[in-house]
């Protein structure tokens, strides 16, 4: 494997956004790119990352390999990279280590690290293609604000989507709160628009702790997409350039 990223910031942000949810992960490398899929210990959230080969230049992966990496270790090493450094990942066949180099674009500084790999026996879970009843695309900063504000009051949030719009509601010890958004097109800045596509009304309840955690990915994309269907895990997607993405699935709280 040899994969060169123009900006180390991308990988730094991805790892930062997932390291509190999952600890030891396989980075599955093949000629289409680098993928990661991992579930948190309590089986409430699933992280699915895809960094397409087009997001790297160059990208070369001659044989499929799984790089078992501890994210705490990776975070320690990535801290040594500046956001605008050029980052190159390298691994040999049947590797013991993954090699990371950080090149400063302005100086002749080159730093190089090896991280020991782990043997991670991870079961691969199939994610079914789902036709969601409601898809909401909104500014990622707006979604962060809603989850942060409501998490001050309650542990969970009800997300209700109807043709009127989407409503986030919470009930807590000190009182309750809600935020409603309507479909809205910002003609000056499309990134600030709220798009709602609905085939049937949806109402689901989720843990805010996890949603707040997902919002650590907000720096990766101006926009976030929420996909909901009744009694199905919520999909929170941050799209990256070249069709790469960081997706989070969150189990709803159901029944009584």
């Amino acid at each position: 494997l040899e994969a060169r990223l123009e900006q180390a910031a991308m990988l730094k942000r991805v790892v930062d956004a997932i390291k509190d949810l999952v600890q030891d992960c396989n980075f599955d490398c093949n000629d289409s790119g680098i993928a990661l899929q991992a579930m948190d210990n309590s089986h409430v959230a699933l992280v699915s990352m895809m960094l397409k080969s087009e997001s790297f230049s160059p990208f070369r992966c001659d044989r499929n390999i799984a790089l078992g990496i501890n994210l705490t270790s990776l975070t320690k090493v990535l801290r040594a990279a500046q956001g605008d450094d050029i980052l190159t990942l390298k691994a040999e066949d049947a590797p013991d280590v993954v090699n990371l180099t950080f090149e400063s674009p302005e100086s002749d500084r080159l730093s190089e690290y090896d991280i020991k790999l782990m043997d991670i026996d991870q079961e691969h879970l199939g994610i079914p293609d789902t036709e969601y009843a409601a898809t909401i695309t909104l500014p990622s900063s707006e979604f962060s604000r809603i989850t942060r504000d409501l998490s001050a009051l309650s542990e969970s949030v009800a997300i209700e989507c109807t043709k009127e719009g989407v409503k986030f509601t919470c009930t807590g010890d000190i009182g309750n709160g809600s935020v409603s958004l309507r479909q809205h097109t910002n003609v000056e800045n499309d990134a600030k628009s709220v798009d709602i596509s609905l085939t049937e009304p949806v109402a689901l309840t989720f843990s805010l702790k996890y949603l707040v955690n997902f919002c650590k990915a907000a720096g990766l994309s101006d926009r976030v997409r929420l996909c909901l269907s009744n009694e199905v895990p919520l999909l929170v997607e941050y799209g990256l350039s070249n069709n790469s993405y960081l997706r989070f699935y969150l189990a709803p709280k159901i029944g009584d």
Binding site: M39, H43, V44, A45, L46, E123, H124, L125, G126, I127, P128, T205, S207, E231, V232, P233, Y249, A251, P252, K253, I254, G255, D256
Partner: peptide
């Protein structure tokens, strides 16, 4: 109280 869906059971092993 509502119960938390288990994602492991949802995402069937492929």
């Amino acid at each position: 109280a509502p119960f938390q869906m288990d994602l492991y059971n949802y995402f069937i092993k492929s």
